[in-house]
Design a protein around this nucleic acid. Sequence first.
DNA 1: AGCGGGATCCAT
DNA 2: TGGATCCCGCTC
Length: 214
Amino acid sequence: MDRLAANRQHGALPVTNAMEPPAVPAMEGFKDRRLPRTFYDRDAVSVAYALLGKHLIHRSGGATRVGRIVEVEAYLGPHDLAAHSARGRTPRTEVMFGPPGHAYVYLIYGMYHCMNVVVEADGRAAAVLLRGLEPVQHIEGRTQGPGLLCRAMHIDRRHNGLDLTGDVLFLSEPAVEVPMTIVKRPRIGVDYAGHWARRLLRFYLKGNRFVSKA
DNA sequence: AGCGGGATCCAT
DNA sequence: TGGATCCCGCTC
């Protein structure tokens, strides 16, 4: 099954970049800070670190929701027994095996969505899970934890496979950088993964109140 | 066709 | 600690 077919199966009415209104109005002095494809074309740990402090932006229904990423987890690939890709290439995990810079969004426990950023070269299957967001603009509800994050950002399976270098859902360099202290911990909810569950692949900003409790 | 379980969250 | 609630992926 090709990627589009997989996306159709796993998300009714897939959101495409073409459906959305023109991106950013041409303005004098506007600086496009969107992260380029090359940002995602690296190992998962490097991208996970680099994502902390970046802005997640979703334009939909005339609203632009913005949150600052404060917590992530790296999933290294099929050899990482905590990663979905460790179960092989299936319709659900198809996007993970695809090119970097796309969204891998899935339904968990029948009621929450989780959003990943696909990283590393096409054919590899690594990703970074977004787990905590500090509200910046037009965010309602809690954003601590991957399920609440997606709910607050109005992200669901329709976004599975979406190109993150487009104009609908993307990541961006914040206008102002601030110093960050990063904490490393074991990932949450992956006790089934043996010794992989103990690897320090969860990263978050020290002291930030929008880091999930767990 | 059936079944076991899940990268969650919340109430008890 | 258990329930909600749906889909996935495997087995029969």
